[in-house]
Amino acid sequence: MLTPDIAIIPEHVAIIMDGNGRWANKRGLARTMGHSKGVEAVKETVRAAGELGIRYLTLFAFSSENWNRPEAEVSDLLGLLRRFIRRDLAELHRENVRIKVIGERDKLRGDILPLLLEAEETTRNNTSLTLVIAFNYGSRDEIARATVRIAQKINAGLMDPSAITADTISDHLDTAGIPDPDLIIRTSGEERLSNFLLWQAAYSEFVFLPDYWPDFNRDLFIEALKIYASRDRRFGGLSARPAAVMG
C-alpha cells in the first residue's frame, strides 16, 4: 500500500476511541455491536500506524472510570479484550509489534491480568511499532501512584527531595521510557482529555474528529496526520518555520 505524502509523521500518536455506543444507537443496534465494530477499527488503525512509520501508538482501551458502566457492558468490553489478545496476538507478534500495557494492575481479577502480561512478554523484544494499551487507566491515578513511588524512595533514603524534577516524575509514570505523544486524536466530536495522559500531553497537538470510533479508518487517520503536519509546534518558544511558510 502506498504511503501518502505527509510532510511530518509523528513519532507517537495517542487516540481516545470514543463513540462506540452512539454509533450503535444511531443504527438502532445494541451498544455491544458498537464495541465489536470498534475492535475492527482498532485492527485497521494498528495496521495503518505500522505502514505509516509511526513508532508508538497509544489506545485508550478501558478507563478506570469505565467500571461504573452497567455490568453487562463491562463484561462485554472485557470479553472483547480477551478475544483481541487471544486471536490477534500471534499476528501482532509476526508483524514485530511490541505491546505495552499502562494502567492500574493490582486490582485486576480473573484472567485479564495474565492475558495482558502474556501479551507484553510475548512481544517484549519486537522492534517495530509499540502498541501501548491504556487499560484500567486514569491519569490522575497514574500520577498519584508515581508520587507514592517517589515518596517511598525518599523515605528509604534513596532520593533527595530537592533533586526532584519534571523528569523524575516522568520516569515514575506508567509511560516511563515512552516519548510523550506528539498528537492526540479523539473521535465522536467530544473535545476533552477525559483523564487521559494529562502529564504527557503538556505539548501534544490535538485533533478532534466528529466521526464515531467504529467509523475510524486509514483515510481518517491520514486526515488527522495531515492536520498535525500543518501545525507549528513551538514548545513555548518561537516558530522554527521560515517566515514565508508562516505567512
Rank of each mutant, 00 (worst) to 15 (best):
G138S: 12
R109Y: 12
G237C: 12
L81N: 05
I85N: 05
P242Q: 14
S162I: 07
K37A: 15
A224F: 07
R145F: 15
Y137P: 08
N66W: 05
I143W: 04
A202V: 09
L158G: 14
E71F: 09
I164E: 00
E142L: 04
E121G: 08
G103L: 04
I143K: 02
P4T: 11
E191R: 13
V207T: 04
R241V: 07
L81K: 02
V42L: 05
E40W: 06
D106A: 15
D211L: 10
L225M: 11
G237K: 12
R98N: 07
T123C: 03
G28Q: 13
E205Q: 13
I54T: 02
L113V: 10
L129T: 03
I54Q: 03
A176S: 15
I164V: 15
R124C: 06
D180T: 12
I164S: 03
R22V: 03
N125H: 14
L78D: 06
L57V: 02
R140N: 08
F221S: 02
P181K: 09
R22H: 04
G177L: 01
I15C: 09
T147V: 09
D171H: 15
I85E: 07
S139Y: 09
N25F: 04
M159K: 11
K153G: 01
T3C: 14
V245L: 14
S36Y: 10
A144R: 15
R233G: 06
T127W: 03
G236V: 12
F84Q: 03
L2M: 13
V46I: 12
K226I: 10
A156W: 04
L92D: 01
I16W: 07
D219N: 15
E120H: 02
I185T: 05
L77S: 01
I54G: 00
P242H: 14
I185G: 00
S63W: 01
R31E: 05
T175Y: 08
T123P: 04
A61F: 00
E118V: 03
M1L: 13
V74C: 08
F135R: 07
P114G: 07
E190T: 10
L117G: 06
K43L: 11
H172P: 13
R105F: 12
D160S: 11
T32S: 15
F196D: 01
M159P: 07
D141V: 00
I112F: 03
L129H: 04
S239T: 15
T168W: 05
K26C: 11
F135H: 06
G138E: 07
N126F: 02
R105M: 14
A7H: 10
R124W: 02
Y228V: 11
E91W: 09
R69W: 10
R231C: 12
E95D: 14
L198E: 00
R55E: 09
S139M: 04
R186P: 01
R22Q: 08
L173E: 10
K26M: 09
F135L: 15
V97G: 01
S64H: 06
V132C: 06
R149A: 13
R186T: 00
E73C: 01
P179T: 04
E95W: 08
G53I: 10
V13M: 05
N195K: 10
L183S: 07
D106V: 10
R109L: 14
R241M: 13
E190L: 11
I185Q: 00
L238Y: 15
R82W: 02
I85Y: 08
F135C: 08
I102K: 06
L129N: 05
I8H: 03
